[in-house]
């Protein structure tokens, strides 16, 4: 991977935006990288817009606030509107094409459109959509290892939800291979 990955994940509150970022950061830390995770915070708890900035780097992280990003993961249209221009030239955008209806304007980035919500729905659990998108991100950037992503799931999920981890990993692989 490149020396520093700057990732913005954005969508509606309740889509697991913040926890997707947290998983990524945790896995990065387990990969012995320097990491930071910064959420948008505010009155929106559910249904409002949510985003987080994740930095995973070989060096200590300077500012945790991103002015540009190497990768953007978006799970709704408004988030694409807001963050599309922040992606660096040559960077990547991964969209949940089940929910993002419009085409992107940028031609200088790699685009991956994955109907993550549809796939998750077919799996029987909508909450896997964010993991499916992360799968593609990990496959294309190697930002974190698959093994440490699984390890991160164990650290982040409460014990009583550990039974979900095999399904989560299956979702990750579906995304990686989409």
């Amino acid at each position: 991977m490149m020396a520093q990955q700057e990732i913005i994940i954005a969508g509606f509150g309740g889509q697991g935006i913040l926890s997707a970022g947290r998983l990524l950061a945790y896995a990065g830390m387990l990969d012995n990288k320097h990491v930071s995770w910064l959420p948008s915070y505010g009155p929106e708890m559910r249904g409002g817009t949510a985003n987080c900035h994740v930095t995973i780097s070989d060096e200590p992280v300077g500012s945790p606030i991103l002015n540009s990003s190497t990768a953007l993961v978006v799970m709704n249209g408004p988030s694409l509107d807001k963050f599309e221009s922040m992606v660096v030239s040559g960077g990547m955008i991964i969209t949940d094409s089940s929910l993002v209806e419009r085409d992107i304007k940028r031609a200088d980035i790699d685009l991956f459109e994955i109907p993550a919500t549809k796939i998750a729905s077919d799996m029987g659990n909508l909450t896997y959509a964010n993991i499916i998108l992360l799968g593609k991100l990990i496959a294309r950037t190697n930002v974190v290892s698959k093994e440490n992503f699984e390890e991160a799931l164990k650290k982040v999920l409460p014990e009583k939800k550990h039974y979900m981890i095999p399904e989560e990993m299956k979702a990750l692989e579906l995304g990686m291979n989409y």
Partner: peptide
């Protein structure tokens, strides 16, 4: 500040 309080790091 709000960033420091809300952010996660190792």
């Amino acid at each position: 500040d709000g960033i420091l309080g809300q952010m996660m790091e190792a």
